[in-house]
Design a binder for these strands. Structure first.
Lengths: 342, 342
DNA sequence: TATTTTTGATAAATCCTTTTAGCAAGATTC
DNA sequence: GAATCTTGCTAAAAGGATTTATCAAAAATA
């Protein structure tokens, strides 16, 4: 019953003036459009009185801009993505944008279907962690002049804005850290994935090992359903077969968690028996005894750059060729006591 | 340049027929509206050919339904809320709904401002973890006939649908578990908050203690900025002052994490020196050595009920008085070896 | 043959804005 | 006094759909 919203038409009728006038006043164009100050004040007062707010839907339809950004990630419940979600939210709202989220599970079909749905919704922009085989879909978006910003990983084959971190460099540093602390046999535990950030982490590890004349030892777990698969026991088997390992570099924090379980079962001591370092820092690494060294991705900077880039792309008038490519440095947290050497 | 989308008008013009006819066919009303099968097929084929999809914006404007649900929680980066977000997402999308999220930080002003913004956006429904002092705002929403579903906590003073868990009962059970295992001095560590779920947890603890003739010992931390505040050291001080404690019940998992740090600093052994249990289960509790007992909220059921309720409210035609009030049981995971007694 | 029914479609209103083009009255200019 | 400018405001189109009311032609009935 209170459901009927007042529209601009109601305002106009009540005051006995035209819709146009009300609209001009609402949009701050009273001066420019030569509406008398007297009338302007009267209308503004009335609007405040009845608490009128223009329908965003109608505005979007008319203006062709919905002020909605899609945040499409692999899994919104993942701590990393959820944290970014939280941080971009504030910045988006501050600029009048809303965020719709969705998770792809890294499934290209799902991602494509989602993107299709959103095109129809006339969203303005997409922040995407691309799944494999998404080149053509992203290209389509760009051709249709949506604002598109990739993050976490990018697509080398297409010219699209992105915000990523220095995966290779940080992996190199982390591996070097292990080497400097006396590790000779360092295992790299990762997942089978052709995601570029995982490839880069492997590259960084490989380069550090090769530069120091050490033999690489890479263990790859299948990408999907890690926990159901018993990743922990798989890692345990790997560690048993490779008992000479004195250092382990985990490519992601969830792998490290599984690895910690395995190490615990094997009664391996950290750092005495084996030195660890993990990509993706996590609160738990400082809670765990002993603390675990890790590479922290700069969440705040990532979020900041994401919104900065997105706003730039959104405000682009088509005259310039928008380009926003950012690679951010990570922070390596060394958590062994500083004088620890093997 | 590819930006111009085809509209229903374009379709009609291209085929030399009226918009109405196209619309009827699009909405599966061809039969009902006596459009010849021949024409129907022709139109359907053409639509597929040009890949036309109706504008959701225009539909929303016309129909007064946007198919958008707002998911307003305290903090979307919190693992609990992020997990729920992930689970309701699937169910929502399956039913043609999209989800916009936002975080209130439990700040009433922020929550009110957000709700105001969303009203304008003509969203259809709200899933809300209410902040304090939100009664009147929620009431307004109900009066304006939005679908509103509270969760995690509810507002006793107003008649609004909700999905919550059995906080008091589970807290009672967890405390009883500690008592049964020989604890005599059980501390309850919680935050200063008048959120009903926190009050209920305290009630459950209190009731268990009183029923067993034990003396209560409650420690309340300020609600805001727990980590900056050095919650861990505050808890440590509390534990030192109350060295007789042989059991601790943490009201939330983040309190437990801080508590674990404190216990570690004090070199307290678990479960030998002190037995623990925490509300809100977490992956870490099984990773941590020893495993920590905890009360698991049934995420899957919560999400399921949330969407079930939301869809019910959304499809409500106003004839019946919609009412969806669900209280779900939790699962207490005992993780001490089963024969452990103090 | 005249009338009624059925068939197959459509015109136009509506949802709520924004914005272009224009109009009447008063003020200036020559 | 006639022509031009300003001022203050508005009509109407557009944006893309849905839906009610209507209509002409063909078919059925009387």
């Amino acid at each position: 019953m209170a459901k009927k919203k007042t529209s601009i038409k109601d305002i106009a009728k009540s005051l006995g003036i035209s819709i146009t006038t009300v609209s001009f006043i609402l949009n701050g164009k009273a001066k420019e459009k030569r509406i008398s100050e007297e009338l302007t004040l009267k209308v503004e007062e009335y609007i405040k009185e009845v608490g009128y707010k223009p329908s965003h839907l109608a505005q979007s339809l008319r203006l062709g801009k919905s002020k909605v950004i899609v945040f499409m990630v692999e899994d919104i419940s993942n701590q990393f993505f959820a944290s970014i979600a939280r941080k971009i939210e504030e910045k988006a709202y501050k600029n009048g944008y809303k965020i719709i989220y969705c998770s792809t599970d890294n499934d290209p079909e799902k991602a494509k279907a989602l993107i299709d749905t959103f095109k129809v919704r006339s969203v303005d922009g997409f922040i995407i962690t691309p799944t494999p085989a998404l080149e053509s879909t992203v290209l389509e978006l760009l051709e249709e002049e949506f604002a598109v910003l990739l993050f976490d990983r990018w697509i080398p084959s297409i010219d699209c804005s992105y915000v990523v971190v220095e995966n290779e460099k940080s992996a190199f540093e982390a591996t070097s850290h292990l080497i400097q602390n006396g590790c000779k046999n360092i295992g790299f535990i990762t997942v089978e994935s052709d995601q570029i950030q995982m490839i880069d982490r492997l590259k960084g590890y490989s380069y550090a090992m090769e530069s120091n004349g050490l033999k690489k030892n890479v263990f790859m777990l299948p990408f999907h359903n890690l926990s159901e698969l018993g990743a922990s026991s798989k890692i345990q088997q790997y560690l048993q077969k490779n008992s000479e390992l004195d250092g382990i570099f985990f490519a992601t924090n969830y792998l490290a968690f599984e690895g910690l379980q395995a190490l615990n079962s094997l009664k391996k001591r950290i750092p005495e028996d084996v030195l660890l370092v993990s990509f993706d820092d996590h609160y738990f690494f400082t809670l765990f005894q002993p603390n675990i060294s890790a590479i922290e991705q700069p969440l705040e900077s990532i979020a900041e750059k994401l919104m900065e880039g997105m706003l730039m792309l959104l405000e682009d008038d088509g005259s310039s060729k928008p380009d926003f490519k950012v690679t951010l440095p990570n922070i390596l947290h060394i958590r062994e006591s500083s004088d620890y050497k093997k």
